[in-house]
Simulated scan of single mutants.
Amino acid sequence: METVLQLQTVLCDESANLALRFRALFSLKHLGVNGDLKAIDAIAAAFSSESALLKHELAYCLGQTKNDYAIKPLRERLDDLNEAAICRHESAEALAAIGGADSLPLLRKYLDDPEEAVRQTCELSIAKIEYDLSEQAKNEDLQKSAFASIDPAPPLPSKMKSISELQDTMNDQSLTLFYRYRAMFRLRDIGTPEAIDALASGFADPSALFRHEIAFIFGQMSDPHSKDALLKVLADTKEDGMVRHEAAEALGSIGLPEIDEELLKYINDPEKLVRDSAIVALDMSEFEKSGELEYALIPGDVRA
């Protein structure tokens, strides 16, 4: 109990280093995944933060707990039209990660939201919940992923389609976003340089949400082969902030000194979302090079 309160104090401290707050968050997420409701409360308490980047990460972590207890604060965030779009989108996605038909009416309410990222995420989230509740989900033979995350769409079955066919499917604007995401996550699970190149083609998609998901996936993969594509996205000042932010964090997850030199250029970026992400990315890179097992604070290292 004391550990949760210490972590919450760090997480909610607006004067604390953002990277330290992220580490506190992921410590709380670990506790929340294991059913600690006080940890979930501690995460939700930080929604009072001024940082859109942090709040979006809070929503993601609440979804990954897959605990119904986290539904209420997530619904409140999605319902708050004054909240940053990046946080509302992540809240909608998190509701789908937790699952359950009870969230469908709220998600349907925002299918016509003024923010494209919100309405597209609601479309995806509805499709995921309906899929999870379907006979198809029970009967599909899906390869077990090496990634433990609860994703916005399951990968396509492993016997379906070559890399080039998956790339075509992923980029086919005539298909549903959910099915295209399924092709995207199958390419992630294949994980070869050819699959990474196929994924990188998704950076040409008209949807910022779609492009941000490509960058997120590259962060999960942490493969140096994605470096050049991510650096190009990060350097594009005309790119949407949610995409550039995700590219920065993905670069941090690769953990190479030459990438650190590039990330340092963005700690004073005009866009707060990007400069905050560069700070967190540099800390992530330090973690990747350290050999530590968990990107989190060890309870004994918590500084209130």
Rank of each mutant, 00 (worst) to 15 (best):
L7W: 02
M170G: 10
P257H: 08
L106R: 03
E258V: 09
M170C: 12
S51H: 07
F22H: 11
D172F: 00
E292L: 12
P152A: 06
A96E: 03
N139I: 10
L106M: 11
K72T: 13
E93W: 03
R186Q: 12
L78V: 09
L62Y: 05
L106F: 07
P206I: 01
H225V: 09
Y181D: 05
I40D: 06
A281F: 02
A250H: 06
E288V: 11
A45S: 14
L282R: 06
L78A: 08
T65N: 06
I217G: 11
A70C: 11
D36A: 10
A247D: 08
K72S: 13
L104G: 10
Q173V: 04
I150T: 15
F147R: 10
E294G: 01
Y179S: 13
G291C: 03
S27Y: 00
F287E: 03
L81K: 14
G32N: 08
D132Y: 03
S134M: 10
L58T: 03
T121N: 08
G100D: 07
A304L: 13
E165N: 08
E286A: 14
A46W: 05
K29R: 14
L18R: 07
T9F: 06
S158N: 12
R182A: 14
G219E: 10
A204P: 07
A278W: 01
I259E: 02
R119Y: 14
D102E: 13
R188K: 15
D102N: 11
D276G: 06
D112H: 13
E93Y: 00
M184K: 09
R23P: 06
L106K: 01
P299V: 00
A183H: 04
A183K: 07
L124F: 00
L18E: 07
Y179Q: 12
D276Q: 15
E292Y: 08
V33N: 10
G99L: 05
E262Q: 14
G255K: 06
A101D: 12
Q220Y: 00
L31R: 11
A247M: 09
L25Y: 02
S48M: 11
P299F: 03
S285K: 11
H89T: 00
L209A: 08
L251H: 05
E50Q: 15
L230T: 04
D189E: 15
A248Q: 02
A39D: 09
L53Y: 15
K227I: 05
D223T: 09
H212T: 07
C61W: 01
T121K: 06
V280M: 10
I126R: 05
S207H: 06
V302T: 11
A250S: 13
P299A: 00
A96R: 01
K109I: 00
G99M: 08
G202E: 04
E258R: 12
S149W: 09
I214S: 12
L53P: 12
E165A: 13
A281M: 06
P257T: 01
D13Y: 04
F203N: 09
R180N: 09
R23Q: 14
H89E: 10
A101W: 04
L37C: 08
S48E: 14
R119M: 11
L293I: 05
S51V: 01
A248C: 08
K144F: 03
